[in-house]
Structures are given as C-alpha cells and as structure tokens.
Design a binder for these strands. Structure first.
Length: 428
DNA sequence: AGAAACTAAGAGCAT
DNA sequence: ATGCTCTTAGTTTC
C-alpha cells in the first residue's frame, strides 16, 4: 500500500544548508574517542576488578556491566566526554509495588521471601524491602575507596567523586586535568555509575509497562514480542520533590536502558536498515541534531530549562520513529525535512504538555512537578523563536574541549556576517 | 575465559 | 561532492 507521509512543510534552503552543515560536525572526532575510550575502559576494568575482590560488600562482587547512554548508542555529540555504565546486581526473586502518583515509573521493591543472599546487607528493617539509598551509598563508598587507589594511565589527571545529588541514581566521577598553561584543573570527562537490580525475563514486565513500546508499525509485532520478553532493571532513584513519603524515599525507578540501546542500534523498519550504503537512513543524525538543539537551549536558559534533558529528546525521537515507521521517510537526502518533522513533534508534545514515557505510557514526562509549567512555557517560547529565526542555535560552535590530543582550529562560520543579535536577545 | 567474527562509523583518498 | 577502503572500538559468539 502507498505510504501517506504527514504534511511536511518545505524547509527553506538556508535552514536546509544549516542543518546539513551542522550535522557534519556533530559526532566525536577519532583522536578524542581514542583518548576517552582508553581512559574510561581502563577505569571500568579496574573498578570491576576492585569490586570482584572487595571484602566490604560481597553483594557487589557479582556485578556485571551494561554500557549504556548515548556514547554506546553512537549518538553522542561533540565530545566523548560523558559515559554511562550500569552495574547489574543479580538478586533473588523480587516483587514490586507501584508508588501512587508516579504512574508506574517508581516502585517500592522487595524480596519475595527472606534470604541469606548478600543483598541482606541492604534491606530495611522488615527484612524484605530493598533500600535504594543504602545500595547507592554502599556503591558510592566502594567507588570512593576504589579511586583513592586507582592510577590514571599515563597520569593524565585524576578522577574525583562528584557531590551526591538528591535524586540521582548515579555515582558520578569526573576526570580532572590541568589544561596547557593553566593553573586550574578542568573536567575532561565524566562517568555516571549506576547500580541496577536485574529482574529476570521470567518475571515479566510490570503492568504499567505492558502497553508501552508501541512499535508494531515500525519495528514490527515480532520485534516487539522479542523486546518485551527481556529482563528489565530498577535503578535507585527517588522522585523529585519535598515531603516524600517514607516509601518514596526508598523508591526505585524502572529502567529499560538495554532495550533503548537495542532499538537505537536496530532502528529500521527493514532489518537491513543502515547495513549497506544503499540502505542508509538519517534517523540517528536527526536525533543528534535534536540533542544539539536541546543542549543549546539549556545553555541559553540554564535555570528555566534545568529539568529539560536529553531523555526528553530521545523519547520524542522514539515516538516519532513509531509514527513515521517507513524507512523511505528517513532517506539520507531528506535529513533536513526529517529533522524538521522531529522538531515539530517536540513542539507538539510541548504545546500539548504531554510526552508519555515510551515504555510507561501513563507517565507524562512533561507533567508538573517533575517538569514545571514555567519550564514548559519557556521551552514553547524558545522553540517558537528558534523556528522563526531559522534555528540560530544550530549555528553556535561546538563547545570548546579542555584537552584534546590535537586541538584543531575552529571551523569557519557558516554565515559571514557576525550576527549574534538574533540569538542573544531572546526574551523569556 | 579468551579469541575470533561481526558491526558501525570516522578518516583518508580517488574519482 | 561522492563513494571506496582501511582502521578502530565495541559487541557477540563460540
């Protein structure tokens, strides 16, 4: 049957050129990647070695690693300076209770029966509920001990433990280096380390997740069946907000990072998408452009858009791919209009104040208080402005990086006239 | 557990 | 500019 595309407004040739120009400079450069991967791989290998031998927390001896996040999805933009790793913790059989008002995103997680397994060091007084805060603190303590003994290869700087953030599931390490000629140290890269409870596939996904992942018209029904019969994870994240109930303080958030990674790697209607030059598509590059725009917006409105993050972009992307499932709609030559379609989708989600979590459709990522109304209205105005002015944020140069092996001169600007007035005077 | 095979994508070069 | 090949990092498989 013929595929009816949505109405795509023609993209002005200026904006077309801008998009095509920007997308060429988005992915990390090879020397940077080489340096970053060496540093982070050495850190990971050594940390794993440390955990497997550690005496203090036997529970962490059995971790395995899941590399996740945009670097490993090959959609990281600009510099390979942010890495995510999940430390997967096998547990005895679990059960979970949805926390009211979080619509299936947050849970209280318990053992089904008392245990002699090593998790017992992390249980609440009832001997069954798993304490998110104690797992996170326990891991933080191990990581802290680890970096105090760890030597960075070739002495390129030192890893420091970042301050604990109230609702973050991660222990974050930053690699601090002294730049040439400077007294001060600056951050070369950071690694988020997130502990995760693995719930085996045999237990099935929570009810709230059973109606998400609407990919039948894109990846297909069989692919959906295969994806939904995998395991899932819980990560120790409490909801934002004051006056949390006692159960909410020990809350776990469901995580499908492994599924997201698989989808982004295998993202076509046809299984063969992007396998050969003839079957290339522009989906990932569209996501990278959207991430670029989101980062730019956050730099311009750091306070108002504090809660906006790349996960919002990724979620809009996944919904858009679901609706616009045919590979012919993402031909490389159509990158500008495809990106504009993605941008329109973001604008629609913003103006409807509705962005369902891709796996937990009842959870609205654009609902207050997690995403405040003033952030949403700021985002709406900012996107209107970007569209009206021809996406000036895509003209901004990539942020400077403190330490590259071969610092290269910045590329010549696309537009000859120095025109900052467009981008500077955006009122809120 | 470790090596080999496979995949994605940057980079250089020829056309 | 476009496409071809080589190289490298990451993942999977046996």
């Amino acid at each position: 049957m013929p595929w009816i595309d949505e109405h795509v407004a023609p993209v002005s040739s200026d904006v077309c050129d801008l998009i095509k120009h920007r997308v060429k400079q988005l992915s990390p450069r090879r020397p940077d990647q080489q340096q970053s991967s060496r540093l982070v791989n050495d850190l990971r290998d050594s940390l794993l070695d440390f955990l497997k031998k550690n005496k203090k927390q036997p529970f962490f001896r059995s971790v395995t690693v899941l590399n996740s996040g945009s670097y490993y999805e090959t959609v990281k933009i600009n510099y390979p300076n942010e890495f995510d790793m999940m430390l997967l913790l096998p547990t005895p059989r679990l059960t979970w209770i949805e926390l009211e008002e979080y619509h299936g995103l947050h849970y209280s997680v318990s053992l089904v029966r008392p245990t002699r397994s090593e998790v017992q060091a992390f249980l609440l007084d009832d001997g069954l509920i798993i304490s998110a805060s104690r797992i996170l603190c326990g891991m933080r303590c191990l990581v802290k001990n680890f970096i105090s003994t760890y030597k960075v290869p070739e002495g390129v700087g030192r890893w420091v433990l970042n301050r604990k953030l109230p609702s973050s599931p991660a222990v974050t390490l930053s690699l601090m280096c002294s730049a040439q000629d400077a007294d001060q140290e600056s951050e070369l890269m950071s690694v988020d380390i997130v502990p995760a409870l693995e719930v085996p596939e045999s237990q099935g996904w929570p009810l709230a997740a059973q109606h998400g992942l609407q990919v039948d018209n894109w990846l297909g029904k069989k692919a959906r069946r295969d994806l939904t019969k995998q395991c899932f994870y819980f990560v120790p994240k409490k909801p934002k907000g004051r006056n949390l109930s006692n159960t909410a303080k020990e809350s776990w958030r469901i995580s499908f990072s492994h599924i997201e990674k698989q989808i982004i790697k295998n993202h076509g209607h046809a299984r063969t998408c992007c396998e050969a030059p003839a079957t290339k598509c522009c989906r990932k590059r569209c996501l990278m452009l959207l991430k670029c725009l989101i980062e730019g917006l956050k730099v311009r409105f750091p306070d108002e858009l504090e809660r906006l993050c790349s996960y919002h972009g990724k979620t809009v992307f996944l919904h858009t791919l679901s609706k616009r499932g045919n590979d012919s709609q993402w031909a490389p030559s159509d990158l500008p209009s495809s990106f504009m379609a993605l941008l329109s989708a973001l604008e629609d989600h913003v103006s409807n104040s509705e962005l369902p979590h891709f796996f937990i459709p009842a959870y609205n990522l654009f609902a207050a208080p997690a995403f405040p109304r003033k952030a949403l209205s700021c985002l709406q105005r900012a996107l209107d402005e970007q569209r009206k002015l021809g996406l000036p944020l895509l003209k901004l140069p990539s942020p400077a990086h403190p330490l590259t092996i071969n610092p290269s001169p910045p590329d010549p600007p696309l537009c000859t006239e120095r025109d900052n007035s467009q981008t500077k005077n955006m009122t809120t």
